[in-house]
């Protein structure tokens, strides 16, 4: 595909309109000095990826990203930050010294160049074929037929994470009996 072809297609402008703000918010996620701002920029980055999936006709994936990541995971992040009483304002400890930044920049920069080169080598001239949008109906059928084992296994993972998470977060039985007594007498602050 030549550059003139690229310019002639309307989808590419939509792509740029999504990708540029997405890149910006992804950059702010890591560069922001404030944890809460980082999380809010993450919403932007995730929303951008959902929009890209919509553009590719994968409705189900797009709405899953919205529901699961933006809806649940980000809210969980905010809850986590607030419950652990992390400092909500500027956090100077987030900025690393130069001797850590420099190697990190070299590694990530060279990885980026390598990946970009390899991606262009593999898919450089390809045109994404025009396909119909994937129907959620088909996704559902394939999850419960061909992918039923991973589906069930994921449910066990979630159950295990839930049970184990509760155990780690709870007070131990012996502490608990003492705490229950003291808590009932405690005057709320």
């Amino acid at each position: 595909m030549t550059f003139t072809d690229w310019v002639a297609q309307a989808e590419n402008y939509v792509f740029l309109a999504i990708a540029i703000p997405m890149l910006f918010s992804a950059w702010r996620v890591v560069a922001s000095q404030n944890v809460v701002h980082s999380v809010l920029y993450l919403v932007g980055a995730l929303a951008g990826s959902a929009a890209l999936f919509l553009l590719l006709g994968s409705e189900f994936v797009a709405w899953t990203v919205v529901l699961v990541y933006i809806g649940a995971v980000v809210v969980l992040f905010l809850f986590g930050i607030m419950i652990t009483r992390a400092p909500l304002g500027q956090d100077v400890e987030l900025s690393q010294p130069l001797r850590q930044r420099l190697p990190a920049a070299v590694v990530s920069g060279s990885l980026f160049l390598l990946m970009t080169g390899a991606m262009f080598d593999a898919f450089g001239g390809d045109v994404i074929p025009e396909t119909e949008a994937t129907r959620t109906f088909d996704v559902g059928i394939s999850i419960f037929e061909r992918w039923v084992i991973p589906f069930e296994v994921v449910s066990v993972i979630l159950l295990a994470a839930l049970v184990g998470g509760i155990v780690l977060a709870r007070r131990d039985p012996d502490e608990m009996t003492e705490e229950v007594v003291s808590e009932s007498e405690e005057v709320p602050q």
Binding site: P150, V153, V156, I157, A160, G164, L168
Partner: peptide, 14 residues
């Protein structure tokens, strides 16, 4: 991948 995650996930907690 999902099987491997089920192997390691609970062990983080244990």
């Amino acid at each position: 991948f999902v099987g491997l995650e089920l192997v390691t996930g609970p062990t983080f907690l244990m």
